[in-house]
Design a protein around this nucleic acid. Structure first.
Lengths: 357, 357
DNA sequence: ATTTAGCACTCCGCCCCGGCGAGTGCAAAA
DNA sequence: TTTTGCACTCGCCGGGGCGGAGTGCTAAAT
């Protein structure tokens, strides 16, 4: 199946609809989200406080359908929101439902006392998926400013050296590097000392540049252990980050949603989680958004995410965004509840990370 | 659903069956594994080189059914192997199919040049699931003999200390420990020095015991940095291992198997993968087996694994078993092909790990 | 001009039915 | 012991009928 050829339109301004139409629209979407079944004029008439006959409702619904907000799966079924309809709903119609006090407490409690960053991220993801009953994703913080705190080198066998970089007071990175020749323990120690003296506290990128400058000088002038230090550091810094770009939890929640029991579709999204490509790109997009961002169905631009919605929020401290988290579920998800939850979780995670620095 | 009340019987000795019956049984199982549909007397008659009428086959099949080896889903369907049938098949009937040269090469190639242990395990799991088209599990090596090579302590803020243990030439473990008071960098250095001198090369358990002995002496006699060293080491050693007990890949392969498109069952097994409890226990059981071990359906003893089979093999060097790997798939899996693959993979992984030590 | 009632119509989901195909078990013949 | 023949049992599939839900349209009511 191709992606819908028609570009995704902006929904009509809420002012373009009569008060009544808007009200009914809202009811319809809420009802559909709650029940999961196409809702008809009869049901809607009962639901609305307005005393109107189903026939009147039908007229309104026909209008809504003309505007592309709702859609009838077949001649004689009720109506279901379209992507455009959901868009209008989340943008201008819905009223957030603030999380209950217990949930708020839960979120704070879970994330407060966790010293290890990795574990904190896992906990966050687990918690978020649990309270939303959806799949959740937490991006690993991409700290662009990584201050080198300390370096240690330890010789291993076969011209290999274990480099330990301590970054940002917290994070420890181990890298095994292969060197041209074997270095003795004392050489390595000297190299480490040199690097620590020269570069401790600097940003990793600065370190890199500094090293390159050193090398630009006449190599011959450098004494042995400087050379060693540089070789080490170069190799250690070049090593790319581990492929773990984000953490996922609650994938199984998606299987429990009968909405899309289409097994092949499920398989595809699970693959997407594993592949970490499309999902990561999507999260990257959301990194620049100011607050919560919602991708509905095809809006994401990724085929696998058709029929799914993604709600994301960047997290960090103040205006420094360092990562994104979010949930993934069926387009028919309780946005009113989910959006504030994602928002809050992002804020609390940001705060928790800040205290760790 | 309860677990079958009847205990799992041993299958009849292959001698208990006539040559012919055994032959037909083998054909039936092979056919069923290949096609996934109950196989009837007619099909079997065609398949067998013996020139026998379907009626004769039927008699034989009736016998096999009496023995509990096969079973008819309903009156007029063909027969399907029972758990007992599979047992007999894998124990005494099937002939292993050796992996093709390309596959063998692939396995060696993939695992040869990977220096990082964690990555190696991931690669192994990925590869195994890919070539078997099943889900695969690789247990993290539980090195009972962990020789301490070096210790480093680095002060962090707030009475926290980062302990870096280098174990077994390769493995690096970082632990953040909370201490009763703040220690200065030099104190920590002295503590590390002490520990390194006293315990480098020893097994972690020995270190533990040694420390306890030290503490048994009159505490007052110990000078400050010894105390510090002991406090550090105690905390660092006590810290439990991270919860990552094994690596899983190819879970999505299970979804593609129409055999069990029962979505709820799938959900449960995915949960089991995440939970890492039942699966881990099962792997632990297999750690003591000499070679490949096969758990068919309910044999595993874990409800979630009904309808699934697990093929495991311990890996390590010589008689030192350090871990287990395996695959999980439907009971109807191509054992002839899978068993040798699991076996080979375990051997190659063991070898690869050995070169890393 | 809007709302309502009435009505014909459409379409899905469900159940029931009958036919077909596959396969069985049994008894009698080879 | 094997085969043939036969009655029987199911599962699967397609068709037909039916009820329910909901629609759109038109004409009447407000």
């Amino acid at each position: 199946m191709y992606m819908s050829g028609s570009p995704i339109h902006r929904p009509p301004a809420p002012g373009a609809l009569s008060e009544r139409a808007l009200h009914l629209f809202r009811l319809l979407v809420e009802r559909y989200i709650a029940e999961g079944q196409p809702v008809g004029s009869r049901t809607l008439a009962r639901e609305a406080n307005l005393t109107l006959s189903p026939a009147t409702i039908r007229n309104v619904m026909a209008d809504l359908e003309d505007m592309g907000l709702i859609h009838a799966p077949h001649t004689s079924a009720g109506r279901v929101p379209t992507v455009l309809g959901y868009r209008l709903f989340v943008d201008s119609v819905m009223t957030m439902r603030v999380p209950s006090a217990e949930v708020v407490e839960r979120i704070h409690g879970d994330l407060q006392h966790e010293a290890d960053v990795q574990k904190l991220l896992h906990k966050t993801s687990d918690m978020l998926s649990e309270i939303t009953k959806l799949a959740s994703v937490v991006m690993i913080p991409r700290v662009e400013q990584r201050a080198l705190r300390q370096v240690e080198f330890l010789p291993l066998s076969d011209n290999r050296v274990l480099a330990i970089l301590i970054v940002n007071e917290q994070e420890v990175q181990n890298r095994i590097i292969h060197t041209a020749r074997a270095y003795s323990a004392s050489e390595l120690e000297q190299a480490a000392n040199y690097l620590n003296q020269a570069f401790a506290g600097r940003d990793l990128m600065q370190v890199r540049e500094g090293l390159l400058r050193e090398m630009a000088r006449n190599r011959a002038e450098l004494d042995r252990h400087m050379q060693a230090a540089i070789e080490m550091a170069e190799k250690a810094l070049v090593a790319e980050k581990s492929g773990d770009e984000y953490v996922v939890s609650g994938q199984t929640n998606l299987m429990a949603i009968n909405d899309l029991s289409n097994i092949e579709k499920l398989r595809q999204i699970f693959e997407a989680f594993n592949q970490k490509r499309d999902i990561l790109h999507l999260l990257d997009q959301a990194v620049n958004a100011h607050g919560v961002q919602i991708f509905i169905g095809e809006e994401s631009g990724y085929e696998v995410l058709n029929d799914y919605s993604v709600v994301t929020a960047p997290y960090g401290s103040e205006d420094k965004v360092i990562g994104v988290l979010g949930v993934i579920g069926p387009t028919r998800m309780p946005y009113e509840r989910v959006v504030p939850l994602v928002d809050l979780t992002a804020k609390v995670l940001g705060a928790a990370l800040k205290t760790l620095t």
